[in-house]
Design a protein around this nucleic acid. Sequence first.
DNA 1: CTTTGCAAG
DNA 2: CTTGTAAAG
Lengths: 310, 310
Amino acid sequence: MPPNGSNASQCTPMDPMHPNAPQCAAAKRSRESAVPLPEETPVREVAPSGKRVGMRLVSWNVAGLRAWLRKGGLKWVQDAAPDVLCLQETKCGAESVPPEVRDLQALPHQYWASPEGKPGYSGVGLLCRCEPLRVTYGIDDPEHDPSARVLTAEFPSFFVVCAYVPNAGRGLTRLQPRLRFDAAFLSYLSRLDAIKPVALGGDLNVAHTELDLRHPSANRRSPGFTDEERRGMDAILAAGFLDAFRVMYPALPHAYTFWTYLGGARERNVGWRLDYFLISERLRPALCDCKIRPRVMGSDHCPVELYLAL
Amino acid sequence: MPPNGSNASQCTPMDPMHPNAPQCAAAKRSRESAVPLPEETPVREVAPSGKRVGMRLVSWNVAGLRAWLRKGGLKWVQDAAPDVLCLQETKCGAESVPPEVRDLQALPHQYWASPEGKPGYSGVGLLCRCEPLRVTYGIDDPEHDPSARVLTAEFPSFFVVCAYVPNAGRGLTRLQPRLRFDAAFLSYLSRLDAIKPVALGGDLNVAHTELDLRHPSANRRSPGFTDEERRGMDAILAAGFLDAFRVMYPALPHAYTFWTYLGGARERNVGWRLDYFLISERLRPALCDCKIRPRVMGSDHCPVELYLAL
DNA sequence: CTTTGCAAG
DNA sequence: CTTGTAAAG
């Protein structure tokens, strides 16, 4: 998720750390026209193939699994009852997963990753109703695998990848390693895709187009909306993956999955679409729907759902 | 204040860090007979000298001035309306004192001390209705003065000293520096007392006698109740100071000023008397009363009041 | 603004 | 258990 000033910076695009930023944000807040959430529509139950939804996946950046649990995030998951749950920013290793999550009857096959020696930072989880054929950690890259940001579950007919793409950092201090991750990650996805179709759920830490964040022009050089990061997303799509949400809703505005905690951004829907399901093109016939659930609380991100006829 | 296990250790006196400590504490909790707070009695308004209360002092370890303010601690102070307020563990330097405190009309002369380069740690404050003749920082000792634990205000007829005596640390890891502080501090008090009478208010981080904590036998080697620390208190009294509360209430049990936040100690009055007013013996004729206010919330310590006919 | 871990009590 | 802190988002 973008840093401190990324949503407040709308007023002073050249300097998100400007001393007047809060004042400016407050002024902006009062002037800003209310932006509604997209209308809620029913899930399309039938895929282009004619088959009906057979598998549901949820991806959610929980911004701290334990706080998310306290805030009731798990209750929504239990109602949604996905077959696969991809969690990002768990901020806890397997040993610290609370029992309420660890002992979930509906999702008994659980895989957790967390960077060595950085407790409370980053971390991903992949929870499955059915046991995968196999689960792998990382993207087979020595630079990036210690950061423990990717989990892959192999099922008979497809891979599920859970990913938490690194943030470029305040002041873009970590843009270069981020871009190297993007390249290595795309290479990994392509290798998987050569074997079986892929469904990727995760926080990709990029708003792809101007439609994908509330204030594009103010965030031209903000982490999560640099040209370089956006081109990384272009590259994934060019390599044969689909942005499932945009396939379903090609021009829907104000559909965001992240709102900074600063300055009451969420209540005004000043957000970013950073969380995605990407699917191999040959899964298009199986794509029933992809839903963003912006009203679901528990984190500064909301969950995203993917419905597949598989 | 005593460390983590100091109140829970009653069950396993030899090992406060025993893995079963929480379980033990829970068991103890259910068995433990309820211990009432001492009965509230009216303030004695007339001193042995026959004169009436003319000056009120309050000492309070606030365990974080900003949190204490949020919890409404200042409201009680405003009602109590002391002439001098001694605060310990402010955990903030002068520059971080919230405006609500900084701009107090009733206590406009304020002096704050905080250790260099340790923000959020320790810290004391001395707030006065009338401007002191002079205020000094520390105890004129190069080992201890950087820790910024003592403030002294000189008034025409007496000194007021605000002190936060260092904790001996978990496992008594800092007992030796603590004992050196005790010696240097007593030397300092004696030098003051040779000039004018002294009224010292503060967290002395010691329960003097078995009457001064709920579980003396379990805490024989706990910080705040070692023989060495208790002898330090003996030494102050032997040097010509009075424990104002004990002068007034020589045998009153269960009169505590601190309760660990752990395990619900306060609701069961499992506490320690660590906060004192000590006065020069020649102030005895001026001693009207000294009150512990155990129902006043805002910190893990409660305030103590000293009433003098001055 | 919020989370985490940390040191300290 | 609670404080304040830092790093991170």
